[in-house]
Every structure is written in C-alpha cells, then in structure tokens.
Computed example of a mutant assay.
Amino acid sequence: MFKNIKDSQITISELMLPSHSNFSGKIHGGYILNLMDQIAFACASKHSRHYCVTASVNKVDFLNPIDVGELVTLKASVNYTGRTSMVIGVRVESENIQTGEKKHCNSSYFTMVAKDENGNNVPVPGIILNSKESIRRFSRSITRQEHAKNRSNDFNSSEFQIKDYLHLIENKNAKIEFDENH
C-alpha cells in the first residue's frame, strides 16, 4: 500500500509565551524540540495509522533564536518510508506578528517507528513520490542513513585506531594526556 505524502502532512502554529523562555529571554530550545517531537509523532502516526515512537533525531541546528511573542509554525512531512520506520522532516519557522518578518529557525529529521498494541514493530505504507522535491528528500534520507551507518562503523570501539585520528585533534581546543599502555 502506498499513500500520498500530502495526506499526512501536518502544520501547527503556537504563540511563544514567557513561560517558554530561557534565562536570556529567548525561547528554550528544549521546548522547541518537544514541539518538534510531537509534530513528528502526529505525522508518522497519521501516515502509518499506528502509535509511533522516536528512534532517532538527526541534526538539530538552531539557526535563529525565537523571541517571546513570536508565532512559531512547525511543518512535518514524511520524507522516507522503510519497512517499519519513517523519516519525518520537520521545519520550524518563527514570525514576528507585528512586522510579519519570518525566520527559518531549524529543520530536523526524526526517524519514527510504527508499533502495534503489544509494542512490536509493524509495517508502514510506502509513500508516493510525485515531485522532484519528494524524490530529492527520499534520496537524501537514504544517503543520510548510509553516512550514519559508516560513521558508526568507523568509530566502533574494537576497530578504532587512535593513530588514524590524532591529526584531527592537533589544532583543536584539547590536550591529550593519555598513556596507551593503560
């Protein structure tokens, strides 16, 4: 079974309140992450028609701060479907409601897994790729997964060779005090 991406896309907007701010008066990143996780869950659950759990979050870069009083809009869309998992792309934008100025605050990718009532993984419907953008996003998800797998293998503790990575550390803000015999 295959479903159209647009059928499970979700957009939510929320006014940022003082209770959402950190000590510097900007909206707390943890609060935004919570909203992102909620919309990813809603999008994945809507697509799969099952309860979903977050398996991983890929790359959360906060590009622009969000101020109290701004309207934050989150958009979620299924970018990739595997057998039981989905990659949900989440975009966060803020808008100054007085000036109308909009800022892209971050984009991230949530891997969500569909579960049955007993907590077992269940197959999810595939997605219909009907635009250049949807094919780009699907392909990008595959590439991101392959890079993550390679990164994990390169730094596997039993395979890791210090000598292969010392050049990376040389001009960084770190000092090595390590006795290889211990």
Score class of each variant (00 low, 15 high):
Ser13Asp: 14
Glu14Asn: 15
Leu15Gln: 12
Leu17Ala: 11
His20Lys: 10
His20Gln: 11
Ser21Leu: 02
Ser21Phe: 02
Asn22Pro: 00
Asn22Gly: 02
Phe23Trp: 11
Ser24Asn: 13
Ser24Trp: 09
Ile27Ala: 01
Ile27Gln: 00
Gly30Cys: 11
Tyr31Leu: 15
Tyr31Arg: 14
Leu33Cys: 06
Asn34Glu: 10
Met36Gln: 09
Met36Ser: 10
Asp37Ala: 01
Asp37Gly: 00
Ile39Val: 15
Ala40Lys: 01
Ala42Ile: 15
Ser45His: 05
His47Ile: 13
Arg49Thr: 10
Arg49Ile: 05
His50Cys: 14
His50Ile: 08
His50Tyr: 14
Cys52Tyr: 07
Cys52Phe: 10
Ala55Lys: 07
Ser56Ala: 11
Lys59Asn: 12
Lys59Leu: 09
Asp61Thr: 12
Phe62Glu: 00
Leu63Ser: 14
Pro65Ala: 08
Pro65Arg: 05
Pro65Lys: 04
Ile66Ala: 03
Asp67Cys: 11
Asp67Leu: 10
Val68Glu: 01
Gly69Trp: 04
Glu70Tyr: 09
Leu74Arg: 07
Leu74Ala: 13
Lys75Asn: 15
Ser77Cys: 15
Asn79Pro: 05
Asn79His: 10
Tyr80His: 09
Thr81Leu: 06
Thr81Ala: 13
Thr84Gly: 10
Val87Glu: 15
Ile88Met: 06
Ile88Gly: 03
Ile88Tyr: 04
Gly89Asp: 03
Val90Cys: 03
Val90Pro: 01
Val90Met: 03
Arg91Trp: 11
Arg91Gly: 15
Val92Asp: 02
Glu93Tyr: 10
Ser94Cys: 09
Ser94Met: 07
Glu95Lys: 08
Asn96Arg: 12
Gln98Ser: 14
Glu101Met: 14
Lys102Glu: 11
Cys105Arg: 09
Ser107Trp: 01
Tyr109Pro: 00
Tyr109Gln: 02
Phe110Pro: 00
Ala114Met: 05
Asp116Glu: 07
Asp116Phe: 09
Asn118Met: 09
Asn118Gly: 07
Gly119Thr: 03
Asn120Gly: 08
Val122Asp: 02
Val124Ser: 04
Val124Lys: 03
Ile127Asp: 02
Ile128Glu: 06
Leu129Asn: 02
Ser131Gln: 06
Lys132Cys: 12
Ser134Met: 06
Ser134Lys: 08
Ser134Trp: 04
Ile135Lys: 14
Ile135His: 13
Arg136Met: 15
Phe138Ala: 02
Phe138Gly: 02
Ser141Ile: 00
Ile142Lys: 15
Ile142Pro: 06
